[in-house]
């Protein structure tokens, strides 16, 4: 089985492709600066969006492969929740392409299917953990709306989406392993 660290490698590769700095704008008089910013921002945001989406697709695929999601239908107890139910938990992804969203939804479906078999207290703790990650993502996305050119925020958003994927994979993997090793 592929090790979870492959997701980390994918992230590392994606991060290596990111610029470590962005040239600050020149000190032009405010009117000209604003006009340039109006033209440049969407372009830069678009480039960043593509880079982040590409990075996360790598992470999602790496994480998904690590868990074996793309090898065939999942087996085991429990019935997966509907996409609508999952969407009530997860922050609506911004700037992400269909490949990433599909991988994320598959992982989330497996995550919720697995935790359905946990004792109620543990399930509540796991759900609370996911909610905290989603709250963090929401906070980051809000900050990014205010500062769309911030490289730092882009990187933090990327990291938070990766943490979300790793968390769901980790919990699903843990519950599956424990279930297999303790069952009759």
């Amino acid at each position: 089985m592929t090790q979870p660290t492959e997701g980390n490698d994918a992230l590392s590769r994606a991060l290596q492709r990111l610029p470590t700095d962005i040239e600050p704008p020149h000190d032009l008089w405010p009117g000209v600066a604003a006009a340039i910013a109006r033209e440049r921002r969407p372009q830069r945001a678009s480039v960043w969006a593509m880079r982040i989406a590409a990075g996360l697709v790598c992470v999602a695929i790496g994480t998904g492969l690590g868990y074996g999601l793309f090898r065939g239908p999942a087996t085991g107890p429990g019935v997966g929740p509907s996409q609508e139910a999952i969407n009530t938990w997860l922050v609506k992804p911004v700037m992400m392409d269909a490949g990433y969203q599909k991988a994320r939804m598959q992982l989330a479906s497996e995550f919720f299917r697995r935790i359905a078999d946990l004792p109620a207290n543990d399930r509540a703790r796991v759900q609370k953990g996911l909610k905290q990650i989603e709250d963090g993502l929401r906070e980051l996305n809000d900050a990014l709306k205010s500062h769309p050119d911030s490289v730092l925020l882009q990187q933090l958003v990327l990291g938070a989406y990766q943490q979300e994927l790793e968390y769901m994979q980790n919990v699903a993997s843990l519950t599956q392993t424990v279930s297999e090793q303790t069952q009759t």
Binding site: P119, D122, R125, L174, T175, T177, V178, Q181, T182
Partner: peptide, 25 residues
């Protein structure tokens, strides 16, 4: 050593091989 469980506390001392310890709570 591999240890796994649902609601268990795990305490390992002086085992020098690889450790893989998993518990839900």
């Amino acid at each position: 050593l591999t240890v796994s469980g649902v609601s268990i506390d795990i305490d390992v001392t002086d085992v020098h091989g690889r450790l893989d310890l998993q518990t839900i709570s």
